[in-house]
Design a binder for these strands. Structure first.
Lengths: 352, 352
DNA sequence: CTGAAAGCGCTAACAT
DNA sequence: ATGTTAGCGCTTTCAG
């Protein structure tokens, strides 16, 4: 068998003056063992007050910042929760994120955010990247994932909460609303108010499954009353409010006899509403309008757009609570929370 | 001296069936050494095609996800960039973040976002937390930080880019606009258009330094023409669009003779604009309006609100480029990029 | 209450 | 092109 001479040891990294400080530096500065320094910095109770103060003084004066990478490797514990959402730009996810932040307060866990741009491959890549940091849990928007992503979630061995949507099979826990039901609910309200020629204006994104499900729910709900959508208008990119205006103009030009417009979100709905007001249309008499999300910026418009509250903040809070609760005692997985969205008719649906 | 018997070795962690997979599992499954497996998974060129495929097949079939914690500890390299912003909820930071994401594409670096809610202590805590993961760089909104935060940034030994604002002393690099100059620029435009009774509507947050600087710039610019603000209105919490409407009503009730309203951001400006239109005021003849940020949702309003573009996306991209460029070769720090905001008079400032 | 030793899972630096 | 060894900076485990 070949003899291996041990390779030269690396140069002592402590020679580098710009190197980040280590526990050892604090240990030497305070005259306390590394182990005890570590105890102090992790706020463990079994250290004498005198020692504790000596250590804290040394750490502070040196400007020591602990290395969580080493800590996580040694303890096999990472206080991070991966949060993966499709977008930050449409006002709905920021509110979910703030709910998550709030729900994680005082749990010792920290959210880390990733964005997929409604792209399943990107979602898979972001998930892989995040799992490689071994987070304590995952919160993810939606139930539709690539097979590889699903496999990763299955075998990660950590709590997974899928949020926003309950129409489908979950990996583990799920917190959300039924978008299909929200669509049906809106159909009922529209028909009950006496509208009959209904148009839909929405996004073209094939991977916005929640918008798709709302449209399906709407269609089913109308069918139940023997009605069908009279016209549809889709858009791809661009800023939603101006798009809503343009699309509304387009659909009303093509189909001037529409008496109701259902928008797949409040932002394009607001654009449409402003357009209709400008055109001097009688709202909600001549034409009714509704959006989706319950954004409270709608309260600032000349007429309050009818909408369905998506319970965004509560979804974030409940999802966070499930992850945070898991560490405690019960390793109960598979929690299912279906919230009930509230329809607010605002000023743009006829009262009967 | 006391004799220490070596403590019992820990139980073999590989006994736990739910334990995450390690390189060693892939090594055993593929019959290739751990080191070579590591090379394959890091896409290094010096591996034969046959070996590479064997390893990849094994890794895939096992569902192996590398442990970046261990990798980072061993290599002393973390491909993360800490990004710290005050808020996600006002449409301006998401655009900065997307600029950062874009600027980091193909650099091998990944942004990680933290939110401070305009709270300096929270900023300090978030920074501490993030630095403890030893990121490769920090991008942070604003130039005002607690002394402790500044000390951490100084001694972190990594590139730091402060963004959005150039009015003040930077820790390292800075990319932004001068909000003071933006305020002065607006004052010039207002005065040049013949307005004389100017009101300001803004936020009460003491730690929104950029809004404060815009107000200071506006005041200075007016003073240069012998003018002073005729009225001001501040708000604290709540949703910006409805608030803008309320505040506008309030200020015009108190001071009905105002002929110009400068809003500290586009969202409250849009609320104010909608209110003025509703009241049948002649815009921009009787009263002029302007906001700040260059949000493109303004394009959907009945009249386009005058605004100043804050170059949000470009700021994100340039900041990211500075961090990404640093790894390459030149360790040049202290880059200073001051962008020139563009004033768009829209439809709400008189043309002369 | 404090300390010593081992090792978390990976990669740098060699050696072949 | 592949393998061997040591060690990254902490925490766990045990001993005192």
């Amino acid at each position: 068998m070949t003899q291996h001479r041990p390779p030269e040891p690396r140069a002592d990294p402590r020679a580098d003056p710009r190197r980040p400080l280590t526990l050892r530096d604090v240990s030497e500065a305070s005259g306390v063992s590394e182990m005890t320094v570590s105890r102090v910095l992790r706020n463990r109770a079994d250290v004498s007050t005198a020692t504790r103060e000596k250590v804290l003084a040394a750490a502070r004066s040196l400007g020591y910042v602990p290395n969580k990478i080493a800590g996580a490797l040694a303890s096999q514990q990472v206080n991070l929760v991966a949060v993966i959402v499709p977008s930050l730009s449409n006002m709905v996810f920021p509110e979910v994120l703030s709910g998550i932040s709030a729900g994680l307060e005082d749990s010792g866990l920290q959210p880390v955010f990733g964005v997929t741009n409604y792209n399943p491959e990107r979602e898979e890549a972001v998930l892989y990247e995040m799992l490689s940091w071994r987070p304590s849990g995952v919160i993810m928007a939606g139930l539709e994932h690539t097979p590889a992503a699903r496999a990763m979630l299955d075998s990660a061995g950590i709590p997974v909460v899928e949020i926003m949507d309950t129409d489908g099979a979950a990996v583990d826990s799920v917190v959300g609303i039924s978008h299909r039901a929200a669509g049906r609910q809106m159909a009922e309200a529209i028909v009950a108010a006496g509208y009959r020629r209904i148009g839909f204006l929405g996004t073209k994104m094939p991977d916005d499954h929640r918008a798709r499900k709302r449209l399906e729910g709407l269609t089913e709900g109308l069918e139940a009353h023997g009605l069908a959508l009279a016209a549809t208008e889709f858009y791809a990119g661009g800023s939603a409010l101006p798009k809503g205006r343009e699309m509304t103009k387009a659909i009303l030009t093509r189909a001037p006899d529409l008496d109701f417009l259902y928008f797949s979100n409040d932002m394009i709905g607001a654009g449409g509403l402003l357009y209709c007001i400008e055109q001097g249309l009688d709202i909600p008499g001549q034409i009714g309008l509704a959006g989706f999300n319950g954004l409270d910026f709608l309260q600032g418009l000349p007429l309050r757009l009818a909408t369905v509250d998506a319970c965004r903040r509560e979804i974030g809070e409940r999802a966070a609570a499930i992850i945070a609760g898991r560490g405690a005692d019960g390793l109960v997985g598979g929690v299912r929370v279906e919230l009930t969205p509230r329809l607010d008719p605002g000023d743009t649906i006829r009262r009967i």
